[in-house]
Write a protein that binds this DNA or RNA. Structure first.
Lengths: 188, 188
DNA sequence: AATAAATTAGGTCGGTCGACCTAGATTAAT
DNA sequence: ATTAATCTAGGTCGACCGACCTAATTTATT
């Protein structure tokens, strides 16, 4: 579907997006960063909108995939397991500059239906993944609505964490433990 | 500090921001929307950056203020009270188009230090406000760290809700109740 | 009334942008 | 070897942008 040149273009575009945001991203700058002529970039992506959509769809797909693969070391207790899962996600948010990209994505998605759709699919997958993980921890007969309630607390929390993390007065690890504890109680 | 003309300009600018985002906001469009000449807008706001900063700082200040004023009807139990507080905030997020503005703010704040500072102050206030509200509900001897833990769950949840709300499989009212219950348990 | 400050109007400037076009080069398929 | 598809280079176009400038008018202060 996409050759190495296409990927190279998107890679350069992502660097610019991280550094300068949606505003700073232009076809010309992408071309310069990729060491190509403008028309060449436009051969691969007819319009800026298409480039942006491909860029962000790709990012979300990749990110969702990295979540799926995520396997954590076995833990002594289900609470520990949950706590480790949450901490892992929070750390992932903190470490990479993906938080910056996500902020752009949220803004762009309001005005680009292709991106909006990709975001929706991403959160759908994320929801499923969290639900599955919680299911492993929850007791046998745990109702689906109870599971949904837990995810409905966890999912917004995770996405909001990258916005408010600098204003919280609790460490990520402490917070993970507390939230895990709280969700664990909810499931039982 | 700012006359009615200045406010009128910012009001028009906010309309454009809501409708077309940061990308679509230009001094010329603001001038047109405000029925002024470009130079006239520039008399009030020397640069686009200053206009944007004033616009978003004002928005956040106003929004923070509306939170402070927020008084809820007395509830029979502290859980109900907490649940109503959360629901009120969630509904507020859903009803107005402020979610759109916030998404722009988060993205812009990464590249505009004045906006970043305003965002930081906003979440500082928000944190304090939530902490105060929880204090009213929590038992007498509730430790400060316990309170901080509760806020550290609640605050990210609220901000993340406006991102993920469409993907949750639980209603806002149900979710408020569940979260209130969970936080209540945490405080005791 | 004089004067300073605030406000309005109209226009120009260099610069960047996305889209578009043509033509040449390379590669793959037949 | 011919042909078609893919890829590259260089350039042009109209549109929009922010910043800047000058001059006129209105409002407030003294």
């Amino acid at each position: 579907m996409m050759g190495p040149k296409g990927k190279h273009i998107l890679s350069c575009a992502m660097n610019i997006l991280k550094a300068s945001g949606d505003q700073g991203l232009s076809m010309r700058k992408v071309a310069e960063a990729a060491d190509m002529r403008l028309s060449n970039v436009q051969y691969y992506f007819k319009t800026k909108e298409l480039l942006l959509a491909a860029l962000l769809e790709g990012f979300l797909l990749e990110y969702a995939e990295s979540m799926q693969v995520l396997t954590l070391p076995e833990q002594p207790s289900p609470e520990k397991k949950l706590s480790h899962l949450i901490l892992h996600i929070l750390k992932d948010i903190e470490k990479s500059d993906c938080a910056v990209v996500f902020k752009e994505i949220w803004a762009i998605s309001e005005r680009n239906s292709a991106v909006k759709k990709a975001v929706d699919e991403y959160y759908g997958q994320f929801h499923t993944m969290l639900s599955d993980e919680l299911k492993k921890i929850a007791p046998e007969g745990c109702k689906k609505t109870t599971l949904n309630n837990a995810v409905a607390i966890l999912l917004p929390f995770i996405e909001g964490y990258c916005i408010t993390s600098s204003n919280l007065k609790v460490s990520a690890s402490e917070l993970s433990e507390q939230l895990a504890l709280v969700l664990y109680k909810l499931l039982f």
